[in-house]
Computed example of a mutant assay.
Amino acid sequence: MKEIDFVAHGDIPYSSAGSDDVYKHIKEAGMFVPTQRTEGISTSDIITRIVCDYDVYARCNLQRGYTAKELNVSFINEKKYHFQNQVDKMKEKVKNMEERSKEFLSTVEEESHDLIQKWEEKLREFIGNF
Rank of each mutant, 00 (worst) to 15 (best):
V73F: 05
E99D: 09
E3M: 03
G40I: 05
F32R: 02
Q86S: 14
E92T: 01
I41L: 14
R37M: 02
S15C: 06
K95E: 14
F75K: 13
E99K: 15
K93W: 01
Q84T: 06
D45T: 12
E98S: 13
K93A: 07
T107N: 12
D11P: 11
D5I: 08
C52I: 11
M1G: 11
H25S: 13
K93N: 10
F104V: 03
K102Y: 05
V33H: 13
E78I: 04
S74H: 06
T107F: 04
S106Y: 11
I76A: 11
T35S: 12
E111D: 14
G65C: 04
K27I: 02
W119A: 11
F32K: 02
Q84W: 08
E39D: 09
F104D: 07
H25G: 01
F126T: 13
F130Q: 07
Y57F: 15
E109Q: 13
R124A: 03
Q117Y: 06
F83M: 04
V87R: 07
I4Q: 02
L123H: 05
Y54C: 09
K95R: 12
T67D: 07
Y81N: 03
V73C: 04
E70F: 12
G10M: 01
W119Y: 15
K95L: 11
K91M: 11
V22H: 01
A8H: 06
D53T: 14
V33P: 00
F126L: 13
I76E: 15
I47C: 05
N96M: 13
K91E: 14
Q36M: 06
T38H: 10
P13R: 07
F83G: 04
V73T: 09
I47P: 02
Y81V: 00
N72P: 00
I116K: 15
H113W: 02
K2E: 03
D114G: 05
Y14M: 09
G128Q: 12
N77I: 00
K27L: 06
L71M: 01
N85M: 08
G10P: 00
S74W: 04
K80R: 14
L71C: 02
P34W: 03
N85E: 08
D11C: 02
N77C: 07
G128E: 09
N77M: 10
I47Q: 02
S112M: 12
S101Y: 10
E70T: 08
K122P: 00
Y81H: 08
A8Q: 13
D55M: 09
I26T: 11
G18D: 04
R59Y: 01
S44L: 04
E99F: 07
H9Q: 05
A29Q: 11
S15R: 03
D20W: 05
E109C: 06
T107Y: 10
E121M: 09
I46L: 11
S15M: 03
D11M: 01
D53A: 15
Y66F: 15
T43E: 10
T67I: 01
Q84P: 01
F6C: 03
D20R: 11
A8K: 04
D5P: 00
T67F: 07
F130S: 12
E28Q: 14
D53P: 00
D114I: 00
E125P: 00
I50Y: 10
K95F: 08
F32Y: 15
T67R: 11
